[in-house]
């Protein structure tokens, strides 16, 4: 399991946050504190408000009630879901990373100093030699790392990742997870959403179970328990111990026939 690096002060704090998009509330009375150096995973079923919570913490979605406090001058970065990227957009890896430094008056072209910084970030993430490749011509793991590099290039102190491992194979998922662990150990605060309880969430030092409300928050030992998972996902789940890790499995008693009987 990934260990928690030394957490010190709050960087973002959400208190009693309620969000709606003009209809049913997507988040109700959500409390979440993000402290310096944390690595947090937000899990929950589809439509539970995971991505909305990320946007609330980022400050791009207005809240209907409650308040969100961010440390003044906090630099944040967002790694979007790869499904939302227009892969035919004509940009190379270097341009994709370089465009992120866009605030204030900048030269249209990437300066020599910026190019050196971009290469340093790409080297740090194992993408050396790919700066002039089109973003479409990379593997899934490399694409994910390019967008991480873009967030790092902005000197972000907190990085948010929306479903960073969706659509990736097991090996690439491990690579991404280890990379995030390395970055966290170097002091970066990371908040991510994931559907993958066993592949990702169980390895994280802190998990937040969300289903419109926060059902549970804490280390996997406290959160990955049948009661919390059932209240989060709305279906019974079993938790097994395997090699010191928690493994979540669907209830063997809950088959397709049971669903049919329940709905009848």
């Amino acid at each position: 399991m990934i260990s928690q690096s030394g957490a010190t002060s709050k960087v973002i704090s959400a208190e009693n946050v309620t969000v709606d998009y003009g209809a049913e509330p997507v988040l109700i009375d959500v409390d979440l504190d993000v402290t310096d150096g944390e690595l947090i995973g937000i899990v929950g079923p589809s439509g539970s408000g995971k991505s909305t919570l990320l946007k609330v913490l980022l400050g791009t979605v207005p809240v209907r009630a409650g308040k969100v406090d961010r440390r003044p001058g906090l630099a944040v970065g967002l790694v979007p879901q790869v499904e939302h990227i227009d892969w035919s957009f004509p940009v190379t890896v270097a341009e994709c990373v370089g465009m992120a430094r866009a605030r204030g008056l900048r030269t249209p072209w990437i300066t020599k100093a910026e190019r050196a910084e971009i290469h340093a970030v790409l080297d740090r993430l194992g993408l050396n030699g790919l700066a002039n490749r089109h973003i479409r011509d990379l593997s899934g793991g490399q694409q994910q790392r390019v967008f991480l590099a873009r967030a790092l290039f902005t000197k972000a102190e907190v990085i948010f990742l929306d479903e960073p491992t969706s659509g990736l194979d097991v090996k690439t998922r491990h690579e991404v997870l280890h990379l995030l662990d390395d970055l966290n150990r170097q002091g970066l605060t990371i908040v991510l959403t994931t559907h993958d309880l066993n592949g990702i969430a169980a390895h994280l030092p802190k998990i937040v179970c969300l289903n419109t409300r926060v059902i549970g928050a804490g280390p996997p030992e406290d959160v990955l328990v049948p009661d919390v998972l059932e209240r989060t996902y709305g279906s019974p789940m079993h938790v097994l111990e395997h090699g010191g890790m928690r493994v979540v499995v669907d209830s063997p008693l809950f088959s397709v026939d049971d669903i049919g009987k329940a709905s009848a």
Binding site: T60, V76, A102, R103, R106, P108
Partner: peptide, 21 residues
């Protein structure tokens, strides 16, 4: 003068907004 902002917003509006553009 707005090349990077324009490029970033065109490519990925949500991330650009989150980054402060």
């Amino acid at each position: 003068f707005g090349y990077r902002q324009l490029l970033f917003t065109t490519f990925d509006t949500e991330v650009a907004k989150a980054t402060g553009v």
